[in-house]
């Protein structure tokens, strides 16, 4: 189980990385944290002609607050996000999700941007940034562009990023007063990819959810925004009845895939259970606030 022959280039600047991507396009893979790419190389499931190592692009790492948004550089390691006081203060949803992302050794190396760019449908971070309305910046020799998270995830490991584009940063609006968050997932073992999960960012007024983003992962081919479940509860005082209504409405939002983790019916059931629990927690937090 040894990786196939390939060539390797270490990019020392973003411009150099972009030039290599422009030159090699589909034949090249960007090597960031490598926590998902390296297994596929070792298993010979992917055979790029060229690996472009961006790990030395310090400009792409870092967390800062700019204009009511947190900017997370694509190369920021998961461990840095988990430790970040900025994230803890302004992006509590992401702070809550981080311990679920794999294990310590993987978080030390894996990158925030890598997780977004890979778009694994069972991953936590794509769901979180979708719930938070983030903007993703990509760049190529053709120029730089911003993509709303809602437009970014296109399908199974498929994104709006073009083969010659490099993910530069993710800008995530800071959590505003009056909004609450909650994150839950079910995985068989600590750090595994989820078999059901939901990221919730809600605006509340007392016991009433006025609006919310409920994003489900580990169900469909990409993180799924549930509009019907939210519509079932929006503007209503939280109660057993609205809880049941949200759970019932979820089947109009979500059509989970069968896979090794379980059947579609099983996953839909779990997502319904999480819907009730995550909203319970959101309301509880709203009360406490």
């Amino acid at each position: 189980m040894k990786a196939p022959k390939m060539t390797y280039a270490r990019a020392d600047s973003v411009a150099q990385a972009l030039a290599l991507l422009a030159e090699h396009g589909d034949g090249a893979n960007v090597l960031a944290g490598g926590q998902s790419l390296m297994p596929t190389l070792n298993m010979r499931l992917s055979k790029p002609d060229l690996l472009i190592d961006i790990n030395r692009l310090e400009d792409l790492a870092g967390i800062s607050v700019e204009d009511d948004a947190v900017r997370i550089g694509a190369l920021t390691r998961h461990a840095a996000v988990q430790r970040s006081p900025i994230v803890a203060e302004h992006l509590p949803l992401i702070a809550e999700a981080m311990p679920h992302v794999a294990h310590v050794a993987v978080r030390n190396r894996g990158t925030f941007g890598g997780s977004i760019a890979l778009a694994d449908p069972a991953a936590e971070l794509p769901a979180c940034i979708l719930a938070l309305g983030a903007t993703i910046t990509v760049e190529s020799v053709r120029g730089r562009r911003d993509i709303a998270a809602a437009d970014f995830f296109k399908g199974l490991f498929e994104t709006e990023r073009q083969p010659d584009e490099l993910l530069i940063e993710i800008r995530i609006p800071c959590q505003r007063p009056g909004t609450v968050h909650a994150f839950m997932e079910l995985s068989r073992r600590q750090g595994d990819f989820a078999i059901a999960g939901v990221a919730c960012a809600a605006e509340t007024d007392g016991e009433t959810v006025t609006d919310a983003k409920l994003v489900y992962f580990a169900s469909e081919d990409r993180p799924t925004l549930a509009a019907n479940a939210v519509a079932a509860i929006a503007g209503k005082v939280w109660s057993d009845e609205s809880r049941s209504a949200a759970m019932a409405a979820l089947s109009e939002d979500l059509d989970p895939m069968d896979n090794l983790q379980g059947s579609a019916a099983f996953k839909l059931h779990l997502q319904r259970v999480l819907t009730g629990r995550v909203l319970d927690q959101a309301i509880e937090r709203a009360r406490a606030a």
Binding site: I195, G262, F266, L270
Partner: peptide, 13 residues
């Protein structure tokens, strides 16, 4: 005894 097996046993799915 996976969660799915347990839920099926309970008749929940």
């Amino acid at each position: 005894m996976t969660p799915e097996v347990v839920l099926r046993t309970l008749g929940k799915i």
